[in-house]
Simulated assay, not measured.
Amino acid sequence: MNMHDEHVTPGADRVAAGAGQLPGTPPRTLLLVDDEQNILAALKRLLRRDQYHILTAGSGQEGLDVLASHPVDVIVSDQRMPGMLGADFLRKAKLLYPQTIRIMLSGYTELQAVTDAVNEGAIFKFLTKPWEDHQLREHIAEAFRLKGIADDNVRLNDQLREVNLALAAANASMQMLVHQQQHQISRDEVSLGIARELLQFLPLPVIGLDDEGMIAFINTAAAALFERGAALLGNEAALVLPHLFADKGIADGAQHLAAIDGQPYAVAIYPMGAHSQSRGSLVTLSRCGAAS
């Protein structure tokens, strides 16, 4: 097998592909395929100044072997070679390594074969032998520029895909958190409804006060105890029920006796908020043996 792996050294005369390469990035790799060793040597001498990493092969099959073991950016292949024509080699290269940019260089004007390969997308450009040095270098530089753009697009698409995946994961996490919070709110609402229902139908008279002493709740037993139970809501407890609170006040935790319709009741005030975010007080009225 006649293959060479050559790292060319920087030259003073650079074309765009070499001069535009960012410091620290790996050199662009060029594969030259021709069965004539003098042609390969001439091409390497011409392109040495352009800082390409140059690989060579003496046939289409050797070219495929090189592609299987080395990442290659641009391929320049002869058309007339023994065993496999350049167009057939470039077709296989496109099939196996579609990311490569492929150029045909030939002294034979087999237009139909070349046209077919171009139409199939196997060939980026077709150049004839003998070549014009500056033109050949410019065409190869253009091929490397296109390959660089394609590589950047792949890299940006990969980064975009990673960002989209991260956003999707964050969105899923946020939706799960919102669902959990909604579920907790629903459970709290159910618990609150059950608690209100229990208080509502509790046989013990219960009055709920907000943190300013206003009557915010009165259960069925308490409403039955006072003729105007419904009218008490939204009023200041010390004003509408002075016989319960005017003398003793509404201090949280206070307990005292009061008379309701001549019957003695123990008035107990329980502050809320010790184990929840509720504010205000609950007042229970328990009938007892004697009024104060």
Rank of each mutant, 00 (worst) to 15 (best):
Asn235Ala: 08
His134Met: 07
Val283Ala: 05
Gln184Pro: 05
His4Arg: 13
Val66Ala: 12
Pro26Leu: 07
His256Phe: 11
Glu6Thr: 15
Ala117Thr: 09
Leu67Gln: 03
Gly60Arg: 07
Trp131Ala: 08
Leu111Asn: 04
Ser278Tyr: 04
Leu55Arg: 14
Arg14Gln: 15
Gly86Trp: 00
His53Pro: 10
Ala266Pro: 01
Val190Ile: 15
Leu177Asp: 10
Ala19His: 06
Ala17Asp: 01
Ala150Ile: 03
Pro205Cys: 12
Ala290Met: 07
Leu199Tyr: 02
Gly280Pro: 13
Pro82Cys: 07
Pro10Phe: 04
Met84Thr: 04
Pro264Ala: 09
Ala291Asn: 02
Ala170Arg: 13
Asn153Tyr: 07
Asn219Leu: 10
Gly86His: 03
Lys125Phe: 02
Gln255Arg: 15
Leu167Trp: 01
Glu236Thr: 08
Leu167Asn: 09
Gly273Cys: 13
Phe144Ile: 00
Ala143Ile: 02
Gly11Gln: 05
Leu239Ile: 07
Leu233Arg: 05
Leu46Trp: 00
Ala166Cys: 03
Gly83Val: 07
His7Lys: 10
Ala268His: 07
Val76Asn: 04
Gln175Thr: 10
Ser281Val: 02
Phe201Tyr: 12
Lys248Ser: 14
Gly86Asp: 01
Asp73Cys: 12
His4Cys: 09
Asp116Val: 14
Ile194Asp: 04
Glu189Ile: 08
Ser59Ala: 09
Asn119Trp: 00
Ala169Glu: 14
Ala259Tyr: 03
Gln37Asn: 11
Gly273Ser: 12
Gly280Asn: 06
Gly121Asn: 08
Gln79Ile: 05
Arg279Gly: 13
Asp5Cys: 13
Asn157Gln: 15
Asp35Cys: 11
Leu64Trp: 01
Leu47Glu: 02
Thr25Met: 09
Ile250Ser: 13
Gln182Ser: 15
Tyr97Thr: 13
Glu189Tyr: 10
Lys147Trp: 03
Gly262Gln: 10
Ala122Ile: 01
Glu142Asp: 09
Pro271Gln: 10
His139Trp: 00
Asp50Asn: 12
Ser191Val: 01
Leu202Trp: 01
Phe226Ser: 09
Asn164Trp: 00
Leu232Cys: 13
Arg161Lys: 11
Asp5Met: 10
Ala16Trp: 00
Val8Arg: 11
Ala68Ile: 03
Ala170Ser: 13
Met174Ser: 12
Ile54Cys: 06
Tyr52Gly: 04
Glu6Pro: 08
Gln180Val: 12
Gly193Trp: 00
Leu111Gly: 01
Val206Trp: 00
Ile260Glu: 04
Glu197Pro: 01
Leu30Met: 04
Glu189Ser: 15
His134Leu: 12
Asp73Pro: 14
Asp50Phe: 01
Glu6Ala: 14
Pro98Met: 06
Ala169Phe: 02
Met81Lys: 05
Ala168Leu: 12
Ile75Val: 15
Thr29Pro: 08
Ile39Val: 15
Lys92Met: 11
Arg155Gln: 14
Asp13Thr: 12
Ser286Gln: 11
His179Tyr: 05
Gly249Asp: 09
Thr220Tyr: 05
Ser286Tyr: 00
Ala19Phe: 06
Val72Asp: 01
Glu62Ser: 14
Ser77Leu: 04
Asp261Tyr: 05
Val8Gln: 06
Tyr97Met: 08
Ala17Ile: 01
Asp35Pro: 15
